[in-house]
Write a protein that binds this DNA or RNA. Structure first.
Lengths: 137, 137
DNA sequence: TTGCTAACCTATCGTTTCAATTGGTTTCGT
DNA sequence: ACGAAACCAATTGAAACGATAGGTTAGCAA
């Protein structure tokens, strides 16, 4: 299940995409529009900045801004960054120790197939597709 | 992420499918073959029985058995029963209170689409497809 | 210089979920 | 009566979740 972290991150990205051109958008505004605690968003947005998805500027007149155009983001990278891992199953997590049953496991092929399905779904979904902006595809 | 409960449930079902005909299979045997604590499996298997996916018989010579043929089960029903909910997102959980933002939410359509994708994937996957048994299909 | 704004940083907290474990009771065949 | 097996209830330790609290630092303007 996708947690609030990933979902909120996505909503922040969309909000910023829909308010492009207004130079830097203070988090306060985003939080109010989205009805999410600003303090909680700070934690999430920090990760988006350090992950290179957003740019932040301090001080008066500061705030956050996308550092690419909306069509150059995909949902997958946003979720992977904030959720840590999108693995469907513990066995497929990147920092899981190798399962000794892997070679004989009846279920592993299905999980792998499922993982691929999810990956493809989110990585083919562009940010521009899910927000109401006029700067087209 | 699919928890151990769902994954173990699936492995029990597969194990039983692969040992069909041996009348009732004691959980002890399944646990040993799968390398999972028998006590923990008891909890999981109880749900499979009360959900009508397995039949259990007590006493000496007892154990568990599938109550349909492997090709008549799909993975989706097994996971739904044991995982409780397969909803990808809290907003789509069956016992979540309606989100006030639902009508204006930019992300909801995507989550709904994702939910459908997952549902279809698991519900079209038959138990017989993922186990090594000779009783065909 | 002072004040304000806004990002940045660190710690903590209450609750829930996860993954079991413990210690039984009941039912059945022999 | 005995043993094997399902059935049942409660607890536990650890981790994750979803925040909240209380700061510090950087930049702009009067």
């Amino acid at each position: 299940m996708i947690s609030t972290k990933g979902r909120y991150a996505l909503r922040v990205m969309i909000d910023l995409a829909e308010h492009e051109g207004e130079t830097y958008v203070p988090l306060k505004d985003v939080a109010e529009r989205q009805g999410i605690s600003k303090k909680y968003l700070e934690i999430i947005v920090k990760e988006l900045v350090s992950g290179g998805l957003l740019a932040g500027v301090r001080g008066k007149g500061g705030g956050y801004r996308l550092c690419r155009r909306p069509e150059e983001y995909n949902v997958g990278e946003i979720l992977e960054l904030t959720e840590g891992s999108m693995a469907a199953v513990a066995c497929l997590d990147h920092n899981a120790d190798a399962c000794p049953r892997a070679s004989i496991c009846r279920t592993l092929p299905m999980w792998t197939e499922y993982d691929q399905l999810i990956h493809d779904f989110f990585h083919s979904k562009k940010l521009s597709e899910i927000c109401h902006t006029n700067s087209a595809v």
